[in-house]
Amino acid sequence: MRKHTPLQLLGQVLFWVIVVVVLFYVLFPFYWAIKTSLTPPVDLSRTALAAFPDSITFQNYVDVFRGQPFGRNLLNSLVVAVGTVLISLVLASLSAYALGKYRFRGKTALMYIILAVSVFPQIAVLGGMYSSIRALNLYNSTLGLMLSYLIFTLPFTVWVLTSFVREIPNELEEAAVVDGATPLQTLVQVLFPVMGPALVTTGLLAFINAWNEYLFALTLTSDDRARTVPVAIGSFSGASQYENPFAQIMAASVIVTIPLIILVLIFQRRIVSGLTAGAVKG
């Protein structure tokens, strides 16, 4: 049996200490949200700092859907996120095919512009976006939110898919051209099946960004029934102006977070492989 030196043992101990600290830092807020959501409101102030609640109730989850259209808000978030992902993937696939497989003047500059747009602060374009949405009569609408969300989802999907398309062997495209396929047929029938992992990855990450977005949803909606869940949770109010419904807020946060956790756990391998696509070659 191989013996470890004291320095190696110290390194292993430090490694696992760091792992435990990171896991605690990441998982503890979610545990505290679940614990608070299961605590009766009357006991919350008394046992706020307790590690475990004295009693457990699911009434907070029921109350989330009472008094406010939280079910409608969930549906709005789902429609907006799915719609944003579909529009982003369609436009990004066409753009990535052109940027990854064709040479034209200004291509490098265009890629840098796309990268710059992806890191542009939302607050800088909020005023112009608000005026545009009002002018298009899309205020308080899911379509207005979809179009506004494309500002941060589309550049990201274009950049990732372009890196992936660039690494697809040219022989596949050349074989399709020899068979008489048009560029659109080549993209749909030949490249799309190969781009599956990248499409899943970029689509899932775009979905998470659209699902969690708050600033645009707050600015471009005023009707409670048109809001998405982040804004709806932020507008929860208690029975009086002096009461904050912490238990209901935590219950709503858990409801909103669980689907994302499930999606990430299912597609975690595809996320890693999709993000690292094109990282070896330039």
Rank of each mutant, 00 (worst) to 15 (best):
Phe15Ser: 06
Leu143Ile: 00
Leu86Ala: 14
Asn244Ser: 14
Tyr214Gly: 15
Leu187Met: 09
Gly100Thr: 01
Phe236Tyr: 12
Gln248Leu: 01
Ile87Trp: 01
Val64Lys: 01
Lys107Asn: 09
Ala51His: 05
Gly234Cys: 08
Asp54Asn: 11
Leu184Thr: 14
Gly127Glu: 05
Val256Gly: 07
Ala96Cys: 06
Ile249His: 05
Arg166Ala: 13
Leu27Glu: 03
Thr5Cys: 05
Thr186Asp: 03
Leu218Asp: 04
Leu27Trp: 13
Ile262Arg: 00
Asp223Gly: 07
Gln68Arg: 11
Lys35Ile: 14
Val280Leu: 12
Leu115Ser: 09
Phe156Thr: 03
Ala48Ser: 11
Ala206Trp: 03
Lys107Ile: 14
Leu23Pro: 08
Leu199Val: 02
Arg166Glu: 15
Asn170Leu: 12
Ser222Glu: 06
Met250Glu: 06
Phe192Cys: 10
Met129Phe: 11
Ala109Arg: 10
Gly100Gln: 11
Ala181Pro: 03
Ala206Pro: 01
Ala232His: 08
Val256Ser: 15
Phe156Ala: 00
Ser163Val: 00
Asp43Lys: 08
Thr201Ala: 12
Phe28Ala: 10
Pro183Val: 01
Arg103Gln: 13
Pro6Tyr: 06
Tyr102Ser: 12
Val231Glu: 10
Val125His: 08
Gly106Ile: 09
Phe152Asn: 04
Leu275Pro: 09
Val20Asp: 06
Leu205Asp: 06
Leu187Gln: 03
Asp179Trp: 03
Leu260Trp: 00
Asn73Ile: 03
Val21Gln: 11
Thr36Ile: 05
Pro183Cys: 01
Leu110Ala: 13
Met250Phe: 12
Val188Pro: 04
Tyr112Ser: 12
Gln185Arg: 13
Gln268Ser: 11
Lys107Phe: 08
Pro183Phe: 01
Pro121Tyr: 10
Asp43Leu: 09
Ser148Tyr: 08
Gly127Arg: 10
Leu49His: 10
Val125Arg: 07
Ile133Asp: 03
Phe216Ser: 05
Ala175Cys: 06
Asn170Thr: 12
Thr39Asn: 03
Thr276Cys: 12
Asn60Gly: 10
Leu138Glu: 02
Pro29Glu: 07
Phe52Met: 11
Leu143Pro: 02
Asp179Pro: 00
Tyr97Glu: 04
Phe24Trp: 06
Thr228Leu: 06
Ile87Pro: 01
Asn212Gln: 15
Leu184Asp: 01
Thr182Arg: 12
Ile56His: 10
